[in-house]
Simulated assay, not measured.
Amino acid sequence: MLEFRDVTLRRAGRVILNQVNLTVSPGEHLALTGPSGGGKSTLLKVALLFEPVDEGTVLWNKREVTVADLTAHRSRFLYIGQKPLPFEGTAEEYLDLPFTFAANRALRADREEQDRLMEALGLDPALKKSPYTRLSGGEQQRLTIIQGLQLERGFCLLDEITSSLDQESMRSVIRHFAQEKGRTVLAVTHNREWLDFGFSEVCLESGTLWRRK
């Protein structure tokens, strides 16, 4: 369970987060909405302790997360941003990239699972042999999502991951996360289709957060 308790963050004299309180329970699927500049992406960074707060605490299972907990704490989360990474190589090599990192070397790429995820997100598995740079932005973004989904992380922090996708691709991505009952999901979005797929709405505007009824 992730909890933000009375979190306040200021930058250059501006209040980015104002006494934010939010508890995300295991298995919960939340869509974090609100206008641009309202602090949504910053809240995800606070969850991972990439942004120090001025007041308040971040807790995991009711225990405050400290700098000493960073490695273990961050390993619980899958963070996916809205822009694919630059990469030279094939799409398959891009999918395999996380397994080259020290934190994931105990894991192995599963080709059948890669193919299953590609088909679920509307991609032809034959694309794995294509140069990554020749793929469209939408194809690269879906590969980035699959790249992360391969990892055994139970809590997904998603930052506008469907913003560059067409309607059909966007729905396939949202549908996939909606069906991921074993994962907890906190998704920053401007797209209200997440709500149509059963996500509960939390709104953050001008640093103030509330749950929609």
Score class of each variant (00 low, 15 high):
58 V>E: 05
66 T>H: 13
42 T>F: 02
35 P>C: 12
73 H>K: 11
88 E>Q: 11
48 L>G: 06
77 F>W: 08
87 F>N: 00
73 H>C: 13
56 G>E: 00
84 P>D: 00
84 P>I: 00
55 E>A: 15
71 T>D: 15
58 V>W: 02
38 G>E: 08
59 L>C: 12
41 S>L: 06
42 T>R: 01
42 T>K: 00
47 A>S: 13
81 G>K: 02
54 D>W: 06
64 E>G: 01
68 A>Y: 12
56 G>A: 08
71 T>Q: 14
39 G>R: 04
69 D>G: 04
74 R>Y: 05
64 E>S: 03
75 S>T: 14
71 T>K: 14
75 S>E: 14
80 I>D: 05
42 T>H: 03
45 K>I: 03
67 V>F: 12
69 D>W: 07
49 L>Q: 13
52 P>H: 11
76 R>S: 03
56 G>H: 01
46 V>C: 10
67 V>H: 15
82 Q>M: 00
80 I>Y: 09
48 L>C: 10
78 L>Y: 11
81 G>Y: 01
83 K>T: 12
37 G>E: 05
50 F>A: 06
61 N>R: 15
65 V>D: 07
82 Q>R: 02
57 T>V: 14
33 T>D: 00
44 L>R: 02
81 G>N: 04
49 L>P: 01
33 T>M: 14
44 L>H: 02
59 L>Q: 11
64 E>N: 00
75 S>V: 05
68 A>F: 11
48 L>H: 07
51 E>A: 14
53 V>I: 08
76 R>P: 01
77 F>N: 04
68 A>N: 14
39 G>E: 08
46 V>Y: 08
